[in-house]
């Protein structure tokens, strides 16, 4: 197969999927109330855009995800670096953080809504927590697993502590940190929708889904699902591109 064709490969299955969906909706025996056609969903998208400020809802969700990602990511990065570089702290905090890892994310929702309320604060607390975990784990592991030969080199070159972090530890852990940040971005996005669905009603894609469920607008629900997936995919692609740029030395 030529390279010209290869770039279409990832599109084949999604296109077939949507085609199958539409065919099923039109010619199958699916109940249109449960499986609206693509046209219906598209029509809903236009109506939402015009009458319900769809863009505003999307931006509200993105903003929430962004703030949570920022708070949780920064906290995870800082704590991960400190723990990874200080064996004593690793001993002290390691077990607790390991337990924290075992707790399903959504199990925090009841607790956080008690502590922070169901409004914006509670939502952001939940999203931050979601972003915190993967960044913390990956930064910590990345820094703790710096090859011994590089630690030795830092000793031979009589690096100061700051230089050791700046020139050796941080860049060595960067690929791992990026893996964490990329996961955190997706976690934050998923948690945003979760917070909007399960906590107080507010502008956002999750809020629209609530309405779709309550008013039995199946096309609205499906539209939101497609939007969630699409935006998540875009976020992921953006993170991958950024990573490739910042880690040029790996492929240079």
């Amino acid at each position: 197969m030529t390279t010209r064709w290869r770039i279409f490969l990832p599109w084949i299955v999604p296109v077939l999927f949507f085609l199958a969906w539409d065919l099923l909706a039109h010619f199958g025996h699916a109940d249109p109330r449960f499986l609206p056609s693509l046209e219906q969903v598209g029509g809903r998208a236009v109506a939402e855009w015009r009458d319900e400020d769809l863009l505003g809802h999307v931006l509200a969700s993105l903003q929430r995800a962004g703030i949570g990602f920022g708070i949780g990511g920064a906290a995870g990065l800082a704590l991960g670096l400190v723990i990874g570089l200080a064996p004593l702290l690793q001993r002290l905090l390691g077990p607790l953080l390991l337990v924290h890892r075992q707790i399903a994310l959504f199990a925090w929702i009841p607790l956080l809504s008690m502590w922070f309320g169901g409004g914006e604060a509670g939502k952001l607390a939940f999203i931050s927590l979601a972003a915190f975990q993967p960044v913390l784990t990956n930064t910590w592991q990345g820094v703790a697993n710096i090859p011994g030969k590089f630690r030795e080199l830092a000793a031979v070159l009589t690096f100061s502590r700051i230089d050791t972090v700046r020139l050796v530890a941080l860049p060595a852990a960067l690929p791992s940190i990026f893996t964490g940040l990329q996961s955190a971005l997706i976690y934050a996005w998923v948690a945003t929708i979760g917070a909007e669905l399960f906590l107080n009603v507010a502008p956002g894609i999750g809020g629209r889904m609530n309405e779709g469920q309550q008013l039995f607008k199946m096309d609205l629900l499906l539209l939101c699902v497609v939007l969630m997936g699409g935006i998540g995919l875009l976020l992921n692609q953006a993170a991958t591109l950024l990573q490739a740029r910042l880690l040029r030395w790996r492929t240079a």
Partner: peptide, 12 residues
Amino acid sequence: MVFQEHRLLPWL
């Protein structure tokens, strides 16, 4: 010191 492997920092 020169090590057996060059031990250059790959990001520099």
